[in-house]
Structure formats: C-alpha cells, structure tokens
C-alpha cells in the first residue's frame, strides 16, 4: 500500500485534485474502498477524501421535495425524522444495513456510486423517483433520474472528476405508503439475496392509483419492475392481485446463480416479497 492522501475543503478543490492525480479515487466513508485496497483489487496513487465537503452533506426539505446530500452518513439518515416520516422504505433499508460501526461512516452517496446490484439504499430511492444531482468538472450541476444512472454491476454514468452532490426525492402524496424488505441468510451484517421496495398510492374503493416497484440483487443493477407496475396500476388492491403481480415480477427480473443464492430461489423470494412488501405499504398508505 502506498498512496497520497488529500482532504480538500471544497468541491472545487476536490475536482482540481482529481484532475491533477490521474490514478486517484474519491473516498467518502471508505468502508468499501479500504477493503478493496487491502485486497489489492485497486491500487490508487492518491485518495481524495470527501468528508470535509459540507456542500454535499445534510438533509433539506421544501414543500414538494427533500434533498439528501451524498455525504450524509447512513446513521444520520436512520436518525433523521424527515427520513422516518416521508421515506419509510429507505428507513427499512437503513436499519438492516451492515453494522452501526459501518453506518456511522458509510454514506448514501457511497452506497449508490459503488453501484452494487444489491445496494440497499438503491431500490428505496428508485421508488421515490430520486434524481441524482451531479457536480460536473466545470462546477455546473446536472440531474439524472436514478434508474438512468446505473450502467452495470459496479458501474454508473459518472465521469472521473464528477462528484455526486446528492439525491432529490419527491415527498409522498396523500394516501400513499411504502416499504422495503430484503432476504438475508443471517440476520446481521448481510447483503441482500433479493429485496423488494414498493411505493403505492391507494384511491377510492382501494384502486391502486400509483405504484412503483424497485428490486435489489436480481439484475445487473438495482431496477424498477416496470412490467409489475403496469400490471398493478388502476387495479383494485387485494392479496390475490399482489400474488399475480409477484408472478410477473419473478419473470421480469434476471437473477443469476452466485455465492449468495440460486437463481430460482431469488425469483421465488421476489414473488413472496412482492406480496409481503405490498401488504406493509398498503397498511402504511391507510395510516396517512
């Protein structure tokens, strides 16, 4: 191991350093990158810490939107009233992620940019229509819907020097509810074998007026299950309809056999969890 280390105080300085050092890496919490460095999977010449950048930290809200800074730690989000109140699926994901030691330093930006197909915060952000706010190398900002940000396993559409500023989420509308649930082999410190997030809006006579479904670990990237959404929209909510939707979701995802589980098993989990998560989201919708 041998690298230089910088801790810039502004986004401008960070981008300047990234241009100066070609084989460098931005690092936020570092909980993934230090493991990769220790395993010699990557050998950067320099690390540029983003921990001093106040511009990318914290949670702000206005009437319609909530902005979550990419540098906000997972623990800060878990303890945030705003997250608990408006984004229960994200809260469900946070409290079952890694350990408190990891959540105290790991950031939501790191979890998303790392782009694991099993990133726990990804499918909750997908169902809240999150937009990624990116600071470009000329310091201008661009926005991209999160589902267009993921390119492939561990890959995102982000240029070398660009920094994710944060995520813009829509506040929930009346009569909507959301939830996230993942299957783990053990109950602690485990990555998702498969996970489902759902955001549902229930109208008069229990008609599903809006529906968003996010799936984790069952495709090259976290995905929206658009076929399942199309099937459910404008239908009357029931357990049976969720069961039918589960059959569609299990076909539209594309899991693989790997160390975490078998393809057929992941498909069955998705089917079962569409129903389970749908019921929780429905109950939460009725509470608001």
């Amino acid at each position: 191991m041998n690298f230089r280390y910088f801790k810039p105080g502004s986004v401008g300085e960070a981008i300047y350093l990234k241009k100066e050092y070609k084989n460098s890496k931005y690092v936020a919490g570092g909980t993934d990158i230090f493991v990769l460095i220790k395993k010699k999977a990557i050998k950067p010449d320099a690390l540029i810490s983003l921990r001093n950048l106040n511009e990318i930290k914290g949670i702000e809200e206005n009437e319609k939107f909530v902005f979550i800074g990419a540098g906000t730690t997972l623990r800060e989000l878990e303890q945030s009233e705003v997250v608990r109140k408006y984004f229960p699926a994200l809260y469900d994901a946070l409290i079952n992620m890694a350990s408190v030691q990891i959540r105290n330093v790991g950031t939501i930006g790191g979890n998303i940019v790392n782009a694991s197909p099993g990133a726990d915060t990804a499918s909750p952000l997908l169902i809240y229509d999150a937009k990624v706010v990116i600071i470009m190398d000329d310091f201008k900002e661009r926005e991209l819907p999160l589902d267009e940000f993921f390119k492939g396993p561990k890959q995102v559409f982000l240029a070398e020097e660009e920094i994710v500023k944060g995520f813009l989420l829509k506040k929930p509308v009346k009569n909507s509810g959301s939830a996230y649930y993942k299957f783990m082999k053990r109950n602690a410190m485990d990555l998702a074998n498969a996970g489902v997030a759902m955001n549902i809006k229930i109208g008069d006579d229990d008609i599903i007026e809006d529906i968003k479904v996010g799936l984790t670990t069952v495709a090259p990237t976290p995905i929206r299950a658009t076929g399942t959404e199309e099937f459910l929209i404008h239908k009357k909510f029931s357990e049976e309809i969720l069961e039918q939707a589960g059959n569609i979701a299990k076909k539209e995802c594309s899991p693989i056999d790997d160390i975490r589980g078998k393809e057929w098993h992941k498909r069955e989990i998705i089917k079962a969890y569409i129903k389970r998560v749908g019921m929780i989201a429905y109950k939460r919708a009725k509470l608001i």
Binding site: K7, G30, T31, N104
Partner: peptide
C-alpha cells in the same frame, strides 16, 4: 463519541 471500525479508518482522517 461514535463507534467505528478502526481497521477501516485512516489515522490521517
């Protein structure tokens, strides 16, 4: 005051 893994924390940080 916050619990962290010292094995994943750089001293300079």
């Amino acid at each position: 005051g916050k619990a962290v893994n010292s094995c994943l924390t750089l001293a300079v940080e």
